[in-house]
Design a protein around this nucleic acid. Structure first.
Length: 339
DNA sequence: TGTGCCGGGAT
DNA sequence: ATCCCGGCACA
C-alpha cells in the first residue's frame, strides 16, 4: 500500500481535482472539456493494468490503515456503496445489491472513486489522495510548509472523503443536458430517532475525523414494518439523480435492526443512490429510478391496503392456531389486531 | 412466496 | 350463525 505512482498518476490527480472541483461546485453544468476525456482515458489505461474485477484505485492512502473503519471498497457494482463491518459483510452487501438493483442496466463496474474534498470554507478543492488534500490544507489553509511531510493530523479535520462516479462524470461530460433534472434535490429528510442522522447532498462517506465515531450511514432492509419500532415516519424519497451518481441518498436506519445485527460493533454502511421504501401505511416509496412519481395504484377493487399490525398468524404462528382470534382462524379480517 | 382476508360454500 | 376454504391482492 505504499505510494505507487503510475505514469499518469500525477496528471490524473490534477485532472481529477480540476474536474471534480467543477463538479462539486456545480454538478449540473459540466464542461465537456477535452481535458476530462483525456483524464478518463488516462484512468482507464491505468485501471486496465490492474487485476480485473476488484481493481483498486492506486490511491494507496485512500483509507487510513489500522482504523476501525474498513478499507473503502472499490468494488462497486452499482451506483452505491455498501459497507458493513463484520462477518455478515458479504451477505449484507449482496442482498443489498439485489435490493437496489438498478433497473436500468448501465455501465456499473469499477466506476466509483474515492476523492478527498477540502472542507475549508469557500474551498472546493478535491483531490484524489488524502496525502494530496492534506498537503493542500497544510499549505493553503494552515499556512505550513508544504514541502515538509510533517503533519500533526490537523488536516484531517478539514477534508472529507467523497465518492464520485467516474462513469457518470464522463457521461455527464459528454452527454450534457443542461436542463436535466439531475440536481441533488432537496436534502432528504431522514427521520432518524437519534441524532446520528446526518444527510448530506454530497457523498461524504466519512472523514478521518469521524472514523472512530459511529457511522451515520446505515442501511437496513426490514422485511416487516413492525420489526422496526423506531418512531419514524415515511422516509421521503430523496429525489434521486437518474444517472448522475456522484451523489447519494442515505437511507434511514432502524436502531432495533441496527443493534440487533451488530450489538457492539459499529456497522456503517454507505449507500449510494436509491432509497428505502416503507412503511406501508401510505403508499410505499418506489425505488425505481425513472419513475419520478410512482403512482401507488390504489387498486380499483378497493381492496383494503394491508395493515401493518401484527396478525394472529404472525403473533402466534401456525402451530398455535388455537390462540388465533376466530376471524383469523376463519381467514377473515383479524379482529384482535385491527389496524 | 407467505400473508391477510374477501367471497362464498357447507353445515 | 358458525365454520371452512378457494383464491386473490399485496408485500
Amino acid at each position: 500500500m505504499a505510494a505507487d505512482p503510475k505514469p499518469c498518476h500525477a496528471d490524473k490527480e490534477v485532472m481529477a481535482a480540476t474536474v471534480l472541483t467543477t463538479l462539486s461546485t456545480n454538478p449540473l453544468v459540466l464542461n465537456p472539456s477535452p481535458a476530462a476525456t483525456g483524464w478518463k482515458e488516462c484512468l482507464s489505461a491505468s485501471y486496465s493494468s490492474s487485476t480485473s474485477g476488484n481493481w483498486s484505485w492506486d490511491a494507496s492512502d485512500q483509507s487510513v490503515p489500522s482504523t476501525p473503519s474498513p478499507p473503502l471498497s472499490n468494488d462497486v457494482n452499482k451506483s452505491f456503496l455498501i459497507y458493513s463491518q463484520g462477518e455478515d459483510n458479504i451477505e449484507e452487501t449482496e442482498s443489498t445489491h439485489f435490493l437496489f438493483e438498478d433497473p436500468i442496466p448501465r455501465k456499473r463496474k469499477n466506476s466509483m472513486k474515492m476523492m478527498f474534498k477540502c472542507l475549508w470554507k469557500n474551498c472546493e478543492k478535491v483531490l484524489s489522495t488524502s496525502s494530496g488534500i492534506q498537503r493542500h490544507i497544510r499549505t493553503i489553509h494552515l499556512g505550513r510548509n508544504g514541502d515538509s511531510d510533517y503533519s500533526d493530523g490537523e488536516e484531517d479535520f478539514y477534508y472529507s472523503e467523497i465518492e464520485v462516479n467516474m462513469d457518470t462524470l464522463s457521461e455527464g461530460l459528454s452527454n450534457l443536458t443542461p436542463t436535466s433534472p439531475t440536481t441533488l434535490g432537496p436534502p432528504p429528510v431522514f427521520p432518524l430517532s437519534s441524532d446520528m442522522a446526518q444527510s448530506k447532498s454530497a457523498t461524504v462517506i466519512h472523514s478521518p475525523l469521524s472514523q472512530s465515531a459511529p457511522s451515520t450511514l446505515c442501511h437496513i432492509h426490514t422485511d416487516h414494518a413492525y420489526q422496526a419500532t423506531a418512531p419514524v415516519s415515511i422516509p421521503t424519497v430523496s429525489s434521486e439523480p437518474m444517472h448522475s451518481h456522484s451523489a447519494i441518498s442515505v437511507s434511514w436506519q432502524s436502531p432495533s435492526i441496527f443493534f440487533k445485527s451488530q450489538p457492539g460493533k459499529v456497522t456503517h454502511v454507505g449507500i449510494l443512490s436509491t432509497v428505502e421504501k416503507r412503511p406501508p401505511v401510505t403508499h410505499a416509496v418506489s425505488k425505481t429510478h425513472n419513475a419520478t412519481i410512482s403512482t401507488p395504484k390504489p387498486s380499483p377493487g378497493t381492496r383494503k391496503p394491508r395493515g401493518e399490525a401484527k396478525k394472529c398468524r404472525k403473533v402466534y404462528g401456525m402451530e398455535k392456531k388455537d390462540l388465533w382470534c376466530t376471524a383469523c382462524r376463519w381467514k377473515k379480517a383479524c379482529q384482535r389486531f385491527t389496524d
